[in-house]
Design a protein around this nucleic acid. Sequence first.
DNA 1: CGAACGTTTGATCACGATCAAAATAGGTGG
DNA 2: CCACCTATTTTGATCGTGATCAAACGTTCG
Lengths: 213, 213
Amino acid sequence: MFYSNTVLKDHGAIVRSARAGETLFVQGEPCANLFELRRGIVRVIEFTAEGDRQIMGFFFPGDFLGLPLAKHHRFSAEAASDLLYVSHCSLSWLSGLVRSREDEERFLAAVCQEERTFMQRGLIMGRVGALARMAAFLVDVIPHLSGTDDVLDFAISQTDIASYLATSPETVCRSLRQLREMRIIAMPRKDRMILQDRELLMLVAEGSHCQQS
Amino acid sequence: MFYSNTVLKDHGAIVRSARAGETLFVQGEPCANLFELRRGIVRVIEFTAEGDRQIMGFFFPGDFLGLPLAKHHRFSAEAASDLLYVSHCSLSWLSGLVRSREDEERFLAAVCQEERTFMQRGLIMGRVGALARMAAFLVDVIPHLSGTDDVLDFAISQTDIASYLATSPETVCRSLRQLREMRIIAMPRKDRMILQDRELLMLVAEGSHCQQS
DNA sequence: CGAACGTTTGATCACGATCAAAATAGGTGG
DNA sequence: CCACCTATTTTGATCGTGATCAAACGTTCG
């Protein structure tokens, strides 16, 4: 069942929408089109041989997905929330020689951003302590979240965070609670987040074991 | 102190050598030249704010380093062993429009490989259990090792592996010992490795807890 | 030869995985 | 709108694994 809706069409680029949970593409299938995310969050999945499933990263409005670096996608992508995105035809990007100078720039920037996303996961998982990892994740993610004022749309489930951080959902929950008790963040609702103390958050992310009450 | 030696010069591409421990480039500095690794192993480092140091990945003969995706390097690179590499001038790559079709292909392949390296670390660190992570690391690395027959040159220090896996050197040592006792690998010398049971290694990497004596 | 570093082994202990179960939220149909 | 079912989040308890400290050993280099 696909809920995708074509909304607008403009010389090869089609604006589409997707519901949370929908699959954009799966690893191994040929790169047919390039996704430019406008609204919502996409999670990138990697399946290992044994059906083991890991979330490799999250993509946010402004990011590009499914860059045709190779002929086939090297990971799967799913909507973590309701989406709005632009679907470009991959073929016009694949033929590198016909690109304009500014397209080239945008292409490099997109590749750079995609690579940074994957590097960042390693960097975050490298931190010692579950709390530090959680904090580092938030430091990385929060700048990409939309929202009014300081109330951010936090449309990422804790189970997804757990998979991303390679930890258990219980630990994610406890880490978030700890951050709330430290008055570093607040979560008026499950999908809302208020950043109360950015400095302290970054300190915790760096591994400061300041255990003050 | 630089031990680099220019060996050969060929229209902008210079063959050079480097001693173990030498720095090829540091993060933040402008992308001056592109490295094509011929022999040896390079480790890629990321420094966080607090002087925290993590090894993000290893590069092997055939790989490209320092791709000009951005104006400045996003990580540092050091020789993990004695190197032989080709230094290309970055400028000829930066101007994308003057590239030939096959250069474009090679460029994409190089980018793809670099990104895969970083994704792989996340995938490996996502495994549960120190032994599974160690095994997954070996599965990933061994195909890139040079060596005669089955005796591979394993020029990666255990401390480097520990940093890469975000674990302690002690645990790395113990994991390797366990793999030796399982007759999965053998290490006649510290920098030599013999793969004895590829199937079992992959099984352990997938997290099989087969604890047979 | 001595100094510095990397590896090995043993000991203890804290952290986070895991199991179990309740509470909350979300979605669907009557 | 409420009842029902499912999935997600929350909390508590126990237990195993890997971090950490400490010390011996081996290697490499000046």
